[in-house]
Design a protein around this nucleic acid. Structure first.
Lengths: 204, 204
DNA sequence: ACCTGAACACCGTTCAAGT
DNA sequence: ACCTGAACACCGTTCAAGT
């Protein structure tokens, strides 16, 4: 049974989950698919291209617009879908960060967010810049969230000895990432609201 | 003349600027310092440790608090210093993203931001979470900003054919990164203001 | 204390040759 | 059309041995 492009993609995702981004090598991927490493180059032009394909695959779920509703709710939904997409595979955020806006689906996600904000009354440029800000926040947050901290929290805690502020910081980073994400997203939404103007009853 | 730890660090930074993160290898670094690659392991336990040292070095400038003043102004100053620090070397943001909160100076920067916000009246946990959000935004933005787009803008522009929204997005990403950064930071600041409460004359 | 030389176990990528 | 085998030019890391 022959290898198809989709098989390579799925194998790469599995290997990524198992070994992390640094452990994902063409040779291991070949072995996992019972094929020589060189054979992969028939399906993908190079490792970089393969990584981009995985990244784009990951973001496919973000390519369709959230259901109608008030702009802030729609935007929150979009941001959550983006985070969930990045969390869909180990080191997903780092992977996307290294290929970023190149892929079709990233652009589509940006397009959708822009529409939401333009419908809310923002001019095109502001809408675009706002989406960049939201995207950057989500990406930064998720990279940190996925940074495997086997010793990370311990290291920070060790350094926090005798420094009340650092102790507080260490505790805060140990909190549920989902709630932290929500909080930061709320800051952005409130900031956007200042520019959009308060909701009117007509928005429903 | 013997090699000192600081020489290795400086050499690594120079090589990073010249070759980028992917081009920074122990062997090339050795060659640049007129030394065998193995010799570097006397000064640093491994490449990872060296990278972390560069990252921490980069963030040293952020470790001291901005001058007194209104909280929003101080926070903006801090965020700018952070961005400038990451821009201090090629791929600086990606580098820091891969080692993140582990380093002393990152923690110190967080501590400083926390103090600013607590002085402004925020409870400790909210102050910490707010700083994470600001940090994640800055990191995400700067990663994108440094993503060498030799073809990136061109790729996006090509895909934008016949899609007015995508064209708008492509134009917006071509804008001055500094102004884009400012805009997104402004969103966050405004969001924080909602929680801190409006400035009073006593803040000066 | 600091470095060399040489090895070990890996990489990504290419490409003739096979089927 | 799809893959093997084998090579090429690299990696990070270790470690005896030198000075």
């Amino acid at each position: 049974m022959q290898l198809r492009r989709a098989d390579v993609l799925r194998g790469a995702r599995d290997l990524l989950d198992a070994e992390g981004l640094d452990g994902l090598t063409m040779r291991k991927l070949g072995a996992a698919l019972n094929v020589q490493a060189g054979a992969l180059y028939w399906h993908f032009a190079g490792k970089q291209v393969l990584l981009e394909a995985i990244a784009d695959d990951l973001l496919a779920a973000v390519a369709e617009p959230p259901p109608a509703g008030p702009w802030d709710q729609r935007l929150v939904t979009l941001a959550h879908k983006l985070r969930q997409a990045l969390l869909g595979v180990r080191d997903g955020a780092r992977l996307v960060a290294e290929t970023f806006v190149t892929e079709p689906n990233t652009a589509l996600a940006g397009r959708i967010g822009m529409r939401i904000l333009m419908d809310a009354g923002l001019p095109a440029e502001q809408a675009a810049w706002t989406m960049f800000a939201v995207g950057h926040y989500v990406l930064g947050h998720t990279i940190e969230e996925q940074a495997t901290g086997p010793d990370r929290d311990a290291k920070l805690a060790a350094r926090a000895e005798g420094d009340a502020d650092l102790r507080e910081l260490a505790t805060a980073i140990g909190a549920d990432p989902g709630r932290r994400f929500e909080f930061g997203l709320g800051l952005l939404i409130d900031g956007i609201r200042v520019r959009v103007g308060p909701r009117t009853p007509a928005d429903n």
